[in-house]
């Protein structure tokens, strides 16, 4: 198990390198530069000499392969570089934003798990019932509704009309501020989990070993506890992992909408001003999160399903 995890962690390195190279390439073909987004007072563009001077200061005048090599050398020392704008180390900037980001992503996921999985279970217990129909209609709308629209709707109803909750901001990490963005972010994974759970439960309930369990004389509650729960978990753990993994990246729209000081909004702001080191840093962290969650899912998989062995 330990060897397996170590190998999987080492396998992340090429993936991260590829991601880093891709970001480098994209920014090299993208029009605009950090100096180009600056204005000297008023609305005048900077003079060409000044632009060249700024570019030279950040090493942007060097050829792309050289810059990439320099970047990799620093990356190997866990140095993500320095922000063009604030001149602070990117690591510090990310460290300041990562907690709000995780807070938002994990609360969204907690909501999706605690509501979505039971809902899918109940729907599967009574297929075709009113609860089932409502859940599945809700799930389809949840999956097809754009996040930002749901966010705006929540803001309008609960902040503007009812005035129960603040409409934006981190509020020094108060729970009141977390609720609306967490719901907006968690609704789609909730819907997906409800659907996957329902399908999983129906699949397990239709299998032969459930007939055996009934022939043994188990009550419905015993059957679910002994022969359904774990088997359903095997079927939904992949979906669950993919959702948790991609949530950090998905959060950027919601973070911008609710002015949430997370990685997503940091990344969007930095893209706008071509603050390349910050963009690279945030994307790497988001990708790393995804990869780590993936390894975790595979390990959990092997723990709950004895047919899978990690090698």
């Amino acid at each position: 198990m330990g060897r397996y995890i170590l190998r999987r962690l080492l396998q992340m390195i090429p993936t991260l390198l590829a991601v880093a190279a891709l970001i480098f390439l994209i920014f090299s073909v993208l029009p605009g530069s950090f100096a180009g987004t600056m204005t000297g007072g008023g609305r005048r563009a900077l003079s060409p000499e000044l632009v060249a001077q700024i570019n030279a200061q950040f090493g942007l005048d060097k050829p792309l392969p050289v810059r990439f090599w320099d970047y990799l050398v620093r990356l190997a020392q866990f140095d993500l570089g320095t922000s063009f704008r604030t001149r602070e180390p990117v690591v510090d900037l990310i460290a300041a934003r990562i907690w709000p980001s995780l807070q938002l992503a994990l609360s969204a996921m907690a909501l999706a798990v605690t509501v979505g999985i039971p809902l899918g279970f109940l729907a599967a217990m009574r297929p075709g019932s009113l609860l089932d129909s409502i859940t599945m209609i809700g799930a389809v709308s949840g999956l097809s509704m754009p996040q930002f629209w749901l966010g705006l709707l929540l803001m309008y109803v609960f902040a503007l009309q009812l005035g129960w909750l603040p409409s934006f901001g981190y509020g020094d990490g108060r729970l009141r501020n977390l609720i609306l963005p967490a719901i907006a972010l968690g609704f789609a994974p909730l819907a997906l989990l409800a659907r996957t759970t329902r399908a999983g439960v129906l699949e397990v309930m239709g299998s032969d070993h459930i007939r055996t369990a009934m022939a043994k004389g188990t009550s419905p509650a015993q059957m679910i506890r002994w022969h359904v729960l774990r088997n359903v978990m095997v079927l939904i753990v992949t979906t669950l992992g993919l959702q948790i993994g991609s949530l950090l990246g998905q959060a950027l729209v919601i973070e911008k909408l609710f002015s949430w000081p997370g990685l997503g909004s940091l990344m969007v702001d930095s893209v706008a001003i071509r603050d390349i080191p910050v963009v690279q840093g945030t994307i790497l962290v988001i990708v790393l999160w995804f990869l780590v969650i993936n390894v975790l899912v595979d390990v959990i998989y092997a723990v709950i399903d004895p047919r899978i062995s990690l090698r």
């Binding site: 299998s207 032969d208 070993h209 007939r211 055996t212 369990a213 022939a215 043994k216 002994w226 022969h227 774990r230 088997n231 095997v234 709950i304 399903d305 004895p306 047919r307």
Partner: peptide
Amino acid sequence: ISMIFQEPMSALNPLA
């Protein structure tokens, strides 16, 4: 009254 089935491969819970 107990019962055994045709398919021993799928009649047992694979995870227990």
